[in-house]
Amino acid sequence: MTLGSTSVIAGIGIDKHYGAFQVLHGVDFSANKGEAVGIVGPNGAGKTTLFGVLAGSTAPSAGVITYQYTDITATNAAQRCHAGIARTHQVPRPFLGMTVFENLLTAATNGAGLTGYEAEAFAVRALIQTGMSPLANRPAAALGLLDRKRLELARALATAPKVLLLDEIGGGLTEGELHQLVTLIAQLKDDGLTIVWIEHILHALLKVIDRLVCMSEGRVIAQGHPKDVMSDDEVMKAYLGSELEVAL
């Protein structure tokens, strides 16, 4: 386990409870610079809550979050975005009153801190990267679910992240689209981005990730090389009867 030392982002001993209901139990998580880490686990395992804690939208009940060797536990979501942590939301949260391009432009000006032509060029870049150019001037409210998910990714990219937290962006895509998504994420990884990807579609995930983390009932039950994690007894048990069998 490499916590704090070589990791670009890490959560150490993360607890999260809502009243008596505990969602995360002492979770240790880390990702190294340029690494792609996959997170799998049954629904309710606490994956999205962990993202919330890392991105600053959910305050942990206990534990420390570090980013580039600095304790960032006390910072808010906006500050973490400025520092370079971007996320997509499992249920898309577009700015419905704006067009696709304006969504991205707002992210480029506020998240990446760009202005004028630079901000516009950066938004265009995210637009092209995610294949959303034909939809540039369409109101976000007119987008279907898949395009809203794509907009989540584009908007996160427009903030110029160093760490990208992706929450189930592959669901519902066709095989062809999934292949393009995997190609893009691999490209981003090659560009030096650190990727953390929660995904149920394992075969897509396995094409990109270096390391796999499996969560169940608020705990990390296994992590390491994807093959080892997936042949782990406890992982098999947690996933029994679900998509892991299909993927294998």
């Binding site: 991105a55 906006a78 996320r87 939301h89 949260r93 577009p94 700015f95 419905l96 506020n110 801190g113």
Partner: peptide
């Protein structure tokens, strides 16, 4: 306008 549409998402893209 981003805050009006979705405050949580606004925070996540760095809006103060």
């Amino acid at each position: 306008q981003a805050i009006r549409d979705d405050e949580e998402a606004a925070k996540s893209i760095g809006i103060r």
